[in-house]
Amino acid sequence: MTDDSDLLDPSRRRGRGAASNRPGRFERHERPPEHDGWEIEEEALPALRTEVREETARRIIARNTSPDIGFDRSVNPYRGCEHGCIYCFARPSHGYLGLSAGLDFETRLTARPNAAPQLRKELSSKRYVPAPLAIGTNTDPYQPVERERRIMRSVLEVLRDFNHPVTIATKGTLVERDADILGPMGQAGLARVGISITSLDAGLSRRLEPRVPAPARRLAAIERLARAGVPVRVMVSPVIPGLTDHEVESILAAARDAGAAAASWIMLRLPHEVAPLFRDWLAEHAPLRRERVMARLREMHGGKDYSAEWHHRMRGEGVHARMIARRFDVAARRHGLDADLPSLRTDLFAVPPQPGDQLTLF
């Protein structure tokens, strides 16, 4: 567990998920805080604010070959995520920027304002072969900063112009803003959205996901997207054994009532720096359940907080992992959420005419 001296005062990190800002795993040196004998008044240390810098992306489509996920390309309009979900498996990616997976991940964001024109360029290549593009696989495209920046909106406009298939994963209800694009694309077989719900308990959700819309608000987003013609999948993600696993059935029932057409789930993952951050969170917010939660996770990962082994990292192993999987399967079948959504279409893809192009007469 992180030493208590590493934890920031709660008044400074109000509305944030992490309690500390330890250096990333690639940093060679640490600078631990040390009391120098001078008393500093609280007002001299303001609450942490969100900072956003800009980055010009040389390439915007990222490729992957993981056997655990069903897509081979993705786009991330932002680095870091202000939602502050304490369990976010993407936190360690901030280490590649020389930043902490803790509070830096939530407060020091990077926006990619050229994402849309760069995407247009890459999709226009004669060598490009269309396949579903995933957005929201690393950080949430509908986090609060998107309301002002509108980078995700501009990316969707490009995908619409190319009739390019897209899948979106989000906790942000700002996705409703783009129903005018996603609705027609969804009806044409070109788009679908996954909405993640970890718990229906608003208080617990606020502590786990401090800047994410409330569970009831996310259910309303499912309803509004479904009504617009967007196929929506509820993602019971992550399932936290000993803390939220008892809610699997109730989340599926509520999502079905809201209009979800399918469901999926993922077990809590604690790679690299996420494990100590989550242990600190348990100590502060759920101390009586801390040992039980970590014991269950270690049972699922061969005695470790987390195992990154292919084909097992998303669900874990052992009795408890199998029990949760079975409960999910039974509940999904009962509520009609067990069928796969139809495959997205790629046959409609076409590069739109660009200004100055010579158009054919026939």
Rank of each mutant, 00 (worst) to 15 (best):
L119A: 07
T110E: 05
R22Q: 11
A19I: 15
G80N: 03
H29C: 12
Y96E: 02
A19T: 06
P113C: 07
L123K: 00
T50Q: 04
Y78Q: 05
P46A: 03
D104N: 08
L119Q: 02
S100C: 15
E122V: 09
E30W: 04
L123T: 01
L109R: 01
L45F: 09
P130W: 11
A116G: 00
H83E: 02
G17H: 09
E54K: 10
R25Q: 11
R79T: 10
P117R: 11
G98V: 10
Y128R: 01
R53A: 13
R14N: 13
T56Y: 12
L48S: 04
N114E: 01
E30L: 13
G37T: 04
G24L: 12
E54D: 15
R12Y: 06
A62N: 08
R79D: 02
G80M: 00
E54G: 09
F89C: 12
G95F: 07
F105L: 03
A131Q: 13
A47Q: 14
A90S: 15
A18S: 13
R28F: 05
T56H: 15
G80I: 13
T110V: 13
A115M: 06
A18F: 02
L45S: 05
W38Y: 10
N76E: 07
Q118S: 11
G37S: 04
A101F: 03
R108Y: 03
T107K: 08
E39D: 09
L103Y: 01
S125C: 00
P113H: 06
A44L: 14
D68W: 06
L97E: 10
A18R: 09
A57C: 09
H35V: 14
A57G: 06
L119N: 06
F26W: 14
L97D: 09
D72F: 12
A44G: 05
E122H: 07
T110W: 09
R58E: 07
P113T: 11
F71K: 06
N114S: 13
A115R: 01
V129P: 02
H35C: 14
L99R: 08
R120E: 07
R49E: 12
S100G: 11
S100P: 03
L119D: 10
L99F: 05
L99T: 01
T110G: 06
G102C: 01
L103V: 02
S74L: 09
R13C: 08
V129I: 14
H83S: 11
E39M: 12
P32C: 07
T65S: 15
E30P: 00
G95R: 05
